[in-house]
Amino acid sequence: MTKKVRVLIAKPGLDGHDRGAKYIARALKDAGYEVIYTGLRQTPDSIVATAIQEDVNFVGLSLLSGAHKELFPKIVELLKENKADDIIVFGGGVIPDRDISFLKDNGVKAVFTPGTPIADVISFIEAQ
C-alpha cells in the first residue's frame, strides 16, 4: 500500500450552490485522490476540525458569495493555531484578480477562478 493524497473540499459561507464543489470533488477522485466532501455552509471552525480529523494534505475552499477575503485567511489562521499549518489551502470561485494576491499573501497557496482546467488543479497538487 502506498500513501494516498487526501483532500478536503469544503464550502464556507452562505451561498447555496455546490455544483462547482461537487464537480471538483469528482474530478479529484478520478485523479486518484481521496476526497472528503462536507457540503454547504461550513464554518471556518468546522472546516479546520474536519481537516485535522481527516488528516488531509489539502483543503480546497469553494466560494461564490464574495466573503473569501474574510473566510479564507481565517481558515489559514485557525490551521496555524491548531499546529496544522502543514495542510495546504487553496481556493476557487468567482474571485476578482485584485483579491488573488491578497489571498496569497494571507497563506492561500493557489486560487483557481472559474474556467480553470481541472488539470491545472491536479498539477498544482502534484507539485507540492
Binding site: A25, R26, K29, D30, E34, V35, Y37, D45, A49, Q53
Partner: peptide, 24 residues
Amino acid sequence: SGGAILGDRLRMQEHATDPGVFIR
C-alpha cells in the same frame, strides 16, 4: 483511479467541532 469520494460525514458535520466526537 484508486480515488474516492468520502461523503458520509456530510450528514454528521454538526458534530465536527465537538471535542468529544472524532469522525474519520
